[in-house]
């Protein structure tokens, strides 16, 4: 039961990643691409956690935590750059 649910969830999250990737490529504006990257990292967290449950290993969690922190920083830095033309003030 759990394995079936996991397989379906893997497919759904993979489609989600594909869709955000298409948006990342077609744009059309810069904020669109930032938003697509933001979504991409959130989807990656979901994929990693699912993999952790599937492989019965808590190790993947650490990677997910790092991606969450770094992804947030990346989004902030990119948006700040658009706003001010500069990251550090």
């Amino acid at each position: 039961m759990l394995n079936l649910a996991l397989s379906i969830a893997f497919v759904m999250v993979a489609i989600a990643i594909l869709l955000s990737f298409i948006r990342l490529i077609i744009g059309p504006s810069v904020p669109d691409r930032i938003l697509a990257l933001d979504t991409l990292y959130i989807n990656t967290i979901a994929l990693l956690i699912l993999l952790g449950i599937n492989l019965q290993s808590a190790l993947y969690f650490e990677a997910a935590l790092l991606i969450a922190v770094m992804g947030f920083m990346g989004t902030l830095a990119l948006s700040k750059y658009l706003l001010r033309g500069d990251i550090m003030e």
């Binding site: 039961m1 759990l2 079936l4 649910a5 379906i8 969830a9 893997f10 999250v13 989600a16 979504t39």
Partner: peptide, 21 residues
């Protein structure tokens, strides 16, 4: 319960990306 939570989670993640697309 676990299976339902996982499926719900994957569904909402997919909906978010469909919205983005």
């Amino acid at each position: 319960t676990l299976a339902i939570l996982i499926l719900l989670g994957a569904f909402f993640t997919l909906v978010g990306s469909i919205g983005l697309f």
